[in-house]
Design a protein around this nucleic acid. Structure first.
Lengths: 342, 342
DNA sequence: CGTTCTACGTATACCGTTCTACAAACCGAA
DNA sequence: TTCGGTTTGTAGAACGGTATACGTAGAACG
């Protein structure tokens, strides 16, 4: 009979004894390392199966890998992140890696603390979704642990991989569509950022500006920075839509803000798209609901998540050149921006 | 100068050398263990600060705790879970414990795999949010690792703690409200479950039945089981709302379903609440948007999360009697169920 | 037939912490 | 002074793996 430890746990020793081989041999099989014959592998695997052996992740982490990837999310309220995570899960399904999530509540210190916590736990890699940190802070982290990011623009760098949609093009799509539909005074509701950083709103603002200028509407450029919380967003929007020179159309940097815009518009008795067109970004599931019917830019969150996870695993396995995946965004037109009765 | 390991990492040894004490002493300070003088503690803490020492979680996990709690979520699309997590974070803020999330995609095997992964990683405790597992599977897990759950009804058991709202009362509130507003043919859209389990829909269905009977509407009891995915839910709802004996009011087991109901109703040209009243459960942020204006039952997700986390930490610290926290639900009435024009 | 190479397995130090046992110092009481 | 008890600190095994270095057998080669 195979020996068990005092605690009754099945360890690598138990397996080794049962299979009649050395501990090192079992370890090799576990890691798929070089120097195991098919016969040995089969024997060990049979024992592992029989004993229902599960490797102790903490112990592995002492010398080798933990096979755990840390995923950083700013918050849990934006369903777009769910799309991304679907892709991440899909990419990791057949691998040994297990993703574990941390939520930073869109708070920079908390984000940093989370990263530290993940490094303390010897995670093999970090997947940052829409990080809020300063550029050099990201770099400092990425140089210590394999890192990939979604929603962070640092093209050309080697210390991390990124997966993004072309935010400039996405914003341009929106402006072009609205102009085609006959709207002129198109305002953009963006994110108020305190720190200088390559957050997605930067290129989206750029695309918006470029699109407006290309349409000869440079004089109507109007970027309204909005804070994070729902309440504050509502206040800003209410203010904007009650102003003397109310915009004819609103391009919101993310769907959540656009949904609030629809809400405020209705509160104020404005018809959409008659009095006001609204367009969002991310094409989250809520856009499709009839009461929203929100035009939005689809950036294929699932693909982004999948690619980012794939790149991260590659990097863990040794690649040290940066790779930067870009997907082309696609405008999904719905009722909130259709035919403007002129 | 304090010695550093080859890798340059600051370890407990480095700290011990710097402070001029033994490794064991530093460990004691770290764990807040018995037998350290104030002087020693101060000296060690100064060294830790100075060297920017961070304990290696994997190494701690080899013998002691990892100070990591696993949080199990069925999915990332329901914003109610965000409320719960806010509470969890709040409860753990001042403790050493770090919550890490796993997402099971509402899939039972995946849920089980996640739990295994968390146990492999020596998590100190498990926090299950709306688990989908069979009763005995939960018990098996809870007997091996400290566990607390939200949205799981097992009153009286000792092997785990729970935090719930009173789902029976919540459902009764809904029915009573709808009856008071003049609705009679009130249907409930519930969750289709394949496994026998104490999922929240069971008591909600009970409350619905009781409420209907109490109002003398027993003959109108109609529980429609709906599947998980958005598409399927829409199909079921469309079917229901096009049937000859269309219900006057819909009580949906969760807000997400209710939002889809609003969407389908609008698609079919039904006015809400004129032709159809809709009520949800969870009072998620979307209820408040004017285009939804959805009446819903508030079960204080944040409080539930906070209490569950608190109970879990207590259990980790040795309590072995079960505690079962229950919060009283509160109906938040909005436009989707107000005055029925008779 | 000796030499070298390669494939396969093994022995064992090592990772960074906690835990158990124990020693030393101090204290108050007899 | 002696003695038992408490407080404070230390030494070293233990946790469950991985990595390194090395031994051995057989194959290939000249």
């Amino acid at each position: 009979m195979a020996p068990t430890t005092r605690t009754g746990r099945v360890t690598i020793k138990t397996v080794a004894a049962d299979a009649g081989v050395s501990v090192a041999a079992v370890s090799k099989v576990l890691r798929d390392a070089y120097g195991v014959s098919d016969a040995l592998r089969a024997r060990v695997q049979a024992s592992m199966e029989k004993l229902n052996y599960r490797p102790h992740a903490a112990a592995r982490g002492m010398r080798g890998q933990t096979y755990t990837l840390g995923v950083l999310l700013p918050d849990l309220r934006n369903p777009f992140f769910a799309d991304i995570l679907d892709g991440v899960n899909q990419a990791l399904e057949r691998t040994q890696y297990q993703p574990l999530l941390g939520v930073s509540q869109s708070d920079e210190p908390m984000e940093q603390a989370l990263i530290d916590a993940m490094m303390d736990r010897q995670m093999d890699g970090l997947l940052m979704i829409g990080p809020r940190m300063q550029r050099d802070a990201v770099e400092a982290v990425a140089r210590r642990i394999p890192t990939a990011a979604v929603g962070l623009h640092q093209p050309g760098v080697d210390y991390l991989d990124t997966a993004n949609n072309d935010d400039v093009a996405g914003a341009e799509l929106v402006v072009k569509h609205l102009v085609d539909e006959g709207y002129r005074r198109i305002a953009m509701v963006s994110l108020m950022v305190t720190t200088k950083f390559e957050v997605v709103t930067v290129p989206r603002e750029l695309g918006y500006r470029q699109g407006m200028k290309a349409a000869g509407l440079g004089q109507h450029i109007n970027i309204v920075p909005a804070p994070q919380t729902a309440r504050e967003v509502q206040t800003i929007l209410r203010h904007l839509l009650q102003s003397r020179h109310r915009p004819e159309a609103l391009f919101c940097w993310t769907d959540m803000v656009a949904l609030h815009a629809l809400s405020v518009a209705r509160d104020l008795g404005l018809s959409v798209p008659g009095d006001l067109a609204v367009v969002g970004y991310d094409n989250t599931t809520y856009c499709d609901l009839a009461q929203n019917s929100l035009t939005s830019v689809d950036q294929s969150g699932q693909v982004l998540g999948l690619q980012a996870a794939r790149l991260l695993v590659e990097r863990i396995n040794g690649r040290d050149k940066g790779e930067h995946f870009v997907v082309t965004p696609r405008l999904v037109v719905r009722g909130s921006s259709r035919p403007r009765p002129s």
